[in-house]
């Protein structure tokens, strides 16, 4: 079962290595990982998607807390959250397919952010399902290159970590 967890850590060199190293040496699988600074310059926030049973998640959380640089671990399992991913997709676009691609992109409320004689680069944000769906539709035109970020998450409502 997939869990999305937020980890608040000290914004210091080496913290990403400590965290990622813990996952690999304890045999936990990271599906995706996103890190950034936060409104507090001393703190970074990681959103990590992991696959595992509840017991595994409990171990992950407890082991993370043993790192000196980990301040807080939140499992978003049972609460409403806003989750987003972003993808950039460079898709083959010739005279015949341009109109269809533009229509598809528009329906998905995605954007074309770069254009060349033979390609579009599409930017899409949203949940993983939405991005999967768009990629599936674009793939019939021929995807030349693509990159997805990891998932990022915040709790809905006034609650903060």
């Amino acid at each position: 079962m997939k869990h999305t967890i937020s980890v608040l850590v000290n914004n210091r060199p080496g913290v990403l290595a400590r965290t990622a190293g813990l996952f690999s040496r304890r045999g936990f699988n990271i599906e995706s990982l996103a890190v950034s600074a936060t409104n507090d310059p001393d703190i970074s926030r990681m959103t990590i998607v992991v696959d595992g049973q509840d017991q595994v998640l409990e171990q992950i959380s407890k082991q993370l807390y043993k790192l000196m640089d980990v301040i807080k671990v939140l499992d978003h399992q049972d609460e409403p959250v806003v989750t987003r991913e972003l993808a950039l997709v460079k898709v083959r676009a010739d005279a015949n397919s341009r109109a269809e691609i533009m229509q598809t992109v528009s329906i998905f409320r995605a954007n074309i952010v770069d254009i060349s004689e033979t390609t579009f680069t599409v930017e899409v944000t949203g949940g993983a399902d939405k991005i999967d769906a768009l990629i599936k539709l674009l793939s019939k035109h021929g995807i030349k290159e693509m990159m997805r970020t990891g998932r990022i998450v915040l709790s809905r409502g006034p609650r903060t970590a």
Binding site: G14, A17, R18, G21, L22, K66, L67, M68
Partner: peptide, 10 residues
Amino acid sequence: TGITMPITKH
């Protein structure tokens, strides 16, 4: 520090 990360408390 990299080498001892998994074998130190910190």
